[in-house]
Design a protein around this nucleic acid. Structure first.
Length: 898
RNA sequence: GCCGAAGUGGCGGAAUUGGUAGACGCGCUGGACUCAAAAUCCAGUGGUGGCAACACUGUGUGGGUUCGAGUCCCACCUUCGGUACCA
C-alpha cells in the first residue's frame, strides 16, 4: 500500500473528533491507581504560531497517554492557552484593536496547528486564561490569598478571621485591628521598587534594562528605580514548606530541585543589633550575619544605598557625597552593579557604630554591594574572614583584624592571614576573641563552637538572636498593564482597601478606546472612565454609599498559569473553580512535561499557591505535580562568517559539503543555534506536516535523541523516519504479506523483544530507543517476507502511540472495526525471550580475540575446556602461562596469561 | 567566579549501569532497476596497514583503580545552561 499520509491523517483526525475518542470522564469504576493525569505546560499563543520546539513535549506526553489508555488507564490529557501577555497589548496600542481579538486569532492558529498533529487531547476541556469564566476564579484565588495569614507555629496558612488579635491592639480600636490584620495577610499593598523610564513614562521589566543602564525600547538612559504602590505576595513565609516539600518529590529531576533550593536560599546565622554612636537618638542598626562568631573581627559596617536609616546616619558634612552616591546607585541596573563587581564602590557616612562584643567604634559605610532586599540591608564587615569585605577594605584602606588562626598546612598563607594580608573563610581556631568586661570568650574554639557560643551570648544579652534567612523575596504581583486579570480591589476615598466579595466577581476588563498607559505610569485601566468608579450602596464593606476607585493594576502572567492544572479537572464549573469531587478524582498531576526555563519561577509560584489552597482545604494534595520532566530545546543549523557574524539560512548554499554565502560568496561555518527570526532558521511544523505528515513529525521529534537533550533539527532526519513509516505502510498495510499458521520463531522472539523494549522505554520516557527497536523489527519482517496476523497486529499496537494515524489505518485494513485507541497493549512473554546459546566474547589479557557460541546451561568447567580447545586461544596462549580465567556467565570470558 | 549538565564515527545518537564500543537513523561509496533522473531495493562504511585472514589503534586530555573502564576515582581542557557582590 502506498503511504498516503495526508489522506490517512485527515481521515483519522476527523474520526477521533467526531467520536470524541479522547474525552475524559470521571468514571468511578476506575480505581485511583488506574487514573492518569498527564499535563503539558500550556503555551502562550504568540502571533508567529507553533515552531517545532512546541510539539516535542506534546508528542512525548501524547505517547504516554495513548500507551496508558491501551494499558487500561483512564487518562486526562488537556490543553489550553496562557493567553494574557504583552505582545497583544502592544499591538493594541499601535492599532487600537482589542487584545482579545488578536489573542483569539492566535489561539485559533495554535489550535489548528496542534490538532493537525493528532495529539489526543480532550478538547472539551480547553481553557483560556483570558476567558472571563476562567479569570473570575483567578480573582477568587487572589481573594483567598488576601484573606489568609500564615501561622508560624502551625506552619500553615489560615483564614484571617482565625487570627488572634493581641489585647493591646484591640484596645487601640478598629483602625489598629484593621492595620494589624493587613500586616498579616499573604497579599499586601505597599511601596515597591520598580524600574521607571523617565522618557517613556512607564514602568519597565528588569530584562528591558540593558547592561549600560539604558532602556531597551527607547534607548535613553533616563531609567531609575522608583517606589510605586504595588501588590506583593509573601511567598517567603512558605519558604520552609517549599524547601521541605522538595524532598518528597522523588520523581523530579535532582537538578530542578537543586535550582529551587538555591533560589529559596536558606541560610542560618544571627541578627545582631549595633548601636549607632552620637546621633542623640537611640538608633540601632540591625544586621544579619551567617558568621556571628566573627564579631570580634568586624571593623566596619556597610548599609545599602536604599536603607531607611541612611538619612539619620549620614553626618551633615557627608550628605552631599552620600546623596550623589545613592543617586548613581539608583541609576545602575543589576547587571551594571555586577560589572563593577571587581571594582567595589562606596562612601563613608561619617558615622560610627559600636561593636557589641567589645564596644569599639567602627565606621559605617554605604555601598551598593549590599542589597536592600536581602537580610536587613546592612552588614557587619569582617574583612579578615570574608572575601568581599576584604576586597572593599583593601580598596578603601579600612582596618583588617584577623580573629581566627587558619587550619591550614600552608604556613605562608597562614602568616599572611595573621598579618591581615589575606582572607580566610574556612575553619580554624579563634584568637583575639574575648572581652572580660562583657563576659565573652571564644578563643581556642572552632567555628561550630564559636557560632553557638556567641549566638547564646547575644540572646542572653538581648542584642541578637539566632535567625534563619531566605534569599527568596516577596513576590511583586502587579503590573501596570491592561491585558491581565483585574484585581478585585477597591481603594476607598478614605484610604482603606477592600477586596470584593465573591458574589461581585468577576471584575471584567472594560473595553477601552485607547490602550496607552495612564498618567504617571498607571495601567491603561486608569483611562477606563466610569468603570473606575465604585459606590458601596449597600454598605457591604463599610459605611453606606462610600465611594471608591477600582484598582487599575492587573495581575502578572504567572497568575493564570499558577492554577490552570486545577481548572482542567472541571473546566466548565460556574459555581466554583473546580469541584472537590473532580479534584479528588484526578489530582495530583501524574506527569508534567515542559521546558527547563520554567524550572524555578513558574514551578515555585504554582507550588506556593497550591500549598495555600491546601492549607485552606481547597485542594487535597500537598504538592501539585508528582513527576516532572524537562524536555530539551530544539535548535537548528545556522551559519556564520569567519568573523562570527550570523548569516540568515536563506542566504546560504551548500556545495561539496561546505557552506557559502549566496551574496558575498564567502565560505561560512555551520553552527547550531536557537531558532530565531533574525537567523531565519525557524522550522514551522505546518511545512513538515505538509511534506511528510504528522506521524513523521512526531516520530522524528522523538527519534532525534533523548527527550531531555538539546538537539538540532535536520530535514534529512525527518526523511529518515518518513522512510521507515513508508516501509511499515508498505509491508504491514498489505494483507497479502499475512500468513496463516505458526509464526517463525526468530520473528516471534524479536516481536517480544520489541514489545518489552517499547513498553519499558515509554515508561522511562526514552522514546528514541523504542523507535530504533521498531525499525529493527520492521527490517526483519521485510526480510522474512511474511508474518502472521497476530504478529502484525501486535506490532501495530506498539507503533500506535507513536504514529497513531498510520496505526489506525493499518489496524482497519486488517478488518478491525473499533478504534485502536483503547485496544489493550500487547504483553510480552518471557518464554520467547529465553536464549539457549550465548556467543561469548573471549578476551586474552583484556583484548577481544575471538567469539565462541556456547549453550547457556553448561558448567564453567565445560566452558573452560571449550575455550582452550579453540585454535585462536591456542595461538595466543602458546608459550604463555595461564594465570587466571574469568568467566562471567552470559557476559564474557577473559584469560589472563603471561 | 560559583552551581549544574555534557564531551563517543563525517552527522544525530546506542551501549542491559564495570563485561563484544559505534545499535538505529542520516550521510557517503558501490551495485540493481531506469533511455535517464528521482524514488525504491541490495551490499559496504570509526581510523591506519593488508588482496585477504588478520593486526594495530580508537569514547575531550593526562594519570589511577580493576582480570576488564565510554561507564568508577583524581587533575585538567572545552562546550552548553543557570546565576549574579546573598552578608
Amino acid at each position: 500500500m502506498d503511504y498516503n499520509f495526508s489522506e490517512i491523517e485527515k481521515k483519522w483526525q476527523a474520526f477521533w473528533e467526531e467520536n470524541k475518542t479522547f474525552k475524559a470522564t470521571e468514571d468511578p469504576s476506575f480505581p485511583k491507581n488506574r487514573r492518569m493525569y498527564v499535563l503539558d505546560m500550556f503555551p502562550y499563543p504568540s502571533g508567529s504560531g507553533l515552531h517545532v520546539g512546541h510539539p516535542e513535549g506534546y508528542t512525548a506526553t501524547d505517547i504516554v497517554c495513548r500507551y496508558k489508555r491501551m494499558m487500561g488507564f483512564n487518562v486526562l490529557h488537556p490543553m489550553g492557552w496562557d493567553a494574557f501577555g504583552l505582545p497583544a497589548e502592544q499591538y493594541a496600542i499601535q492599532t487600537g484593536t482589542h487584545p482579545a481579538v488578536v489573542t483569539n486569532k492566535n489561539c485559533d492558529t495554535f489550535r489548528r496547528q496542534i490538532k493537525s498533529l493528532g495529539l489526543s487531547y480532550d478538547w472539551d476541556r480547553e481553557i483560556n486564561t483570558t476567558d472571563i469564566k476562567y479569570y473570575k476564579w483567578t480573582q477568587w484565588i487572589f481573594a483567598r490569598l488576601y484573606n489568609t495569614w500564615f501561622d508560624e507555629k502551625l506552619q500553615k496558612g489560615r483564614h484571617i478571621d482565625e487570627l488572634d488579635i493581641p489585647a493591646e491592639i484591640l484596645q487601640e480600636g478598629a483602625g489598629s485591628v484593621r492595620a494589624y490584620k493587613d500586616s498579616k495577610r499573604l497579599a499586601y499593598y505597599d511601596d515597591a521598587q520598580v524600574w521607571w523610564c523617565n522618557k517613556c513614562k512607564i514602568v519597565c521589566a528588569n530584562e528591558e534594562i540593558l547592561n549600560d543602564g539604558s532602556h531597551e525600547k527607547c534607548g535613553s538612559r533616563e531609567v531609575e528605580r522608583r517606589n510605586l504602590k504595588q501588590w506583593m505576595l509573601k511567598i517567603p513565609l512558605y519558604a520552609e514548606r517549599l524547601l521541605k516539600g522538595l524532598d518528597e518529590l522523588k520523581e523530579w529531576p535532582e537538578s530542578v530541585k537543586e535550582m529551587q533550593r538555591n533560589w529559596i536560599g536558606r541560610s542560618t546565622g544571627a541578627e545582631v543589633d549595633f548601636e549607632i554612636d552620637g546621633t542623640g537618638e537611640e538608633l540601632k542598626l540591625k544586621v544579619f550575619t551567617t558568621r556571628p562568631d566573627t564579631l570580634f573581627g568586624a571593623t566596619y559596617m556597610v548599609i545599602a544605598p536604599e536603607h531607611e536609616l541612611l538619612g539619620k546616619i549620614v553626618i551633615p558634612e557627608n550628605e552631599n557625597k552620600v546623596k550623589q552616591y545613592v543617586q548613581s546607585a539608583s541609576l545602575k541596573s543589576d547587571l551594571d552593579r555586577t560589572d563593577l563587581a571587581k571594582e567595589k564602590t562606596g562612601v563613608f557616612t561619617g558615622r560610627f557604630a559600636l561593636n557589641p562584643v567589645n564596644g569599639k567604634k567602627i565606621p559605617i559605610w554605604v555601598a551598593d554591594y549590599v542589597l536592600t532586599g536581602y537580610g536587613t540591608g546592612a552588614i557587619m564587615a569582617v574583612p579578615a574572614h570574608d572575601t568581599r569585605d576584604f576586597e572593599f577594605a583593601q580598596k578603601f584602606g579600612l582596618q583588617i583584624h584577623p580573629i581566627m588562626d587558619p587550619a591550614t598546612p600552608d604556613s605562608e598563607l597562614r602568616n599572611k592571614v595573621l598579618a591581615g594580608e589575606a582572607c580566610w573563610t574556612e575553619d580554624g581556631v579563634y584568637i583575639n576573641s574575648s572581652d572580660d568586661a562583657r563576659g565573652i570568650d571564644i578563643n581556642g574554639l572552632n567555628k561550630e563552637q564559636g557560632v553557638a557560643r556567641i549566638t547564646e551570648w547575644l540572646e542572653k544579652r538581648g542584642i541578637g538572636k539566632a535567625k534563619v534567612n531566605y534569599k527568596l523575596r516577596d513576590w511583586l504581583f502587579s503590573r501596570q498593564r491592561y491585558w491581565g486579570e483585574p484585581f478585585p480591589v477597591i481603594h476607598w476615598e478614605d484610604g482603606e482597601i477592600s477586596v470584593l466579595d465573591d458574589e461581585e466577581l468577576p471584575v471584567v476588563l472594560p473595553a477601552l478606546e485607547k490602550y496607552q498607559p495612564g498618567e504617571k505610569g498607571e495601567s491603561p485601566l486608569a483611562n477606563a472612565g466610569e468603570w473606575l468608579e465604585y459606590t458601596d450602596t449597600e454598605g457591604r464593606y463599610g459605611p453606606k454609599n462610600r465611594k471608591g476607585r477600582r484598582e487599575t493594576n492587573t495581575m502578572p502572567q504567572w497568575a493564570g498559569s499558577c492554577w490552570y492544572y486545577l481548572r482542567f479537572v472541571d473546566p466548565n464549573n460556574n459555581e466554583a473553580p473546580f469541584s472537590a469531587k473532580n479534584e479528588h478524582y484526578w489530582m495530583p498531576v501524574d506527569l508534567y512535561i515542559g521546558g527547563a526555563e520554567h524550572a524555578v519561577l513558574h514551578l515555585l509560584y504554582s507550588r506556593f499557591w497550591h500549598k495555600v489552597l491546601f492549607d485552606l482545604g481547597i485542594v487535597s494534595t500537598n504538592e501539585p505535580y508528582t513527576k516532572l520532566f524537562n524536555q530539551g530545546m530544539i535548535l537548528a543549523f545556522a551559519y556564520e562568517t569567519k568573523s562570527g557574524s550570523k548569516v540568515p539560512s536563506d542566504e546560504v548554499e551548500e556545495r561539496d559539503g561546505k557552506f557559502w554565502s549566496k551574496i558575498t560568496g564567502e565560505e561560512l561555518l555551520q553552527i547550531v543555534a536557537k531558532m530565531s527570526k533574525t537567523l531565519k532558521n525557524v522550522v514551522n511544523p505546518d511545512d513538515v506536516v505538509k511534506k511528510y505528515g504528522a506521524d513523521s513529525l512526531r516520530l522524528y521529534e522523538m527519534f532525534m535523541g533523548p527527550l531531555e537533550a538539546t538537539k538540532p533539527w535536520t530535514e534529512t532526519g525527518v526523511k529518515g523516519v518518513f522512510g521507515f513509516l513508508s516501509r511499515v505502510c508498505k509491508f504491514f498495510g498489505e494483507t497479502s504479506n499475512i500468513t496463516e499458521g505458526e509464526e517463525n520463531p526468530e520473528t516471534l522472539k524479536l516481536l517480544h523483544q520489541t514489545i518489552k523494549k517499547v513498553q519499558s522505554d515509554i515508561e522511562n520516557l526514552r522514546f528514541n530507543t523504542a523507535i530504533s527497536k521498531m525499525m529493527e523489527f520492521t527490517n526483519h519482517c521485510m526480510k522474512a517476507g511474511k508474518v502472521t496476523a497476530n504478529t502484525a497486529m501486535d506490532f501495530i499496537k506498539c507503533l500506535a502511540p507513536f504514529a497513531p494515524h498510520l496505526a489506525e489505518e493499518i489496524w482497519h485494513i486488517h478488518g478491525n472495526k473499533e478504534t485502536l485507541a483503547y485496544q489493550s497493549f500487547p504483553e510480552y512473554d518471557e518464554k520467547y525471550l529465553v536464549e539457549h546459546t550465548f556467543e561469548y566474547p573471549v578476551s586474552i589479557n583484556g583484548k577481544l580475540r575471538f567469539k565462541l557460541p556456547l549453550p547457556v546451561d553448561i558448567s564453567e568447567e565445560e566452558i573452560r575446556a571449550k575455550v582452550f580447545e579453540h585454535e585462536t586461544a591456542q595461538k595466543w596462549l602458546s608459550g604463555q602461562q595461564v594465570k587466571k580465567v574469568i568467566i562471567v556467565p552470559k557476559k564474557i570470558i577473559n584469560i589472563v596469561a603471561g
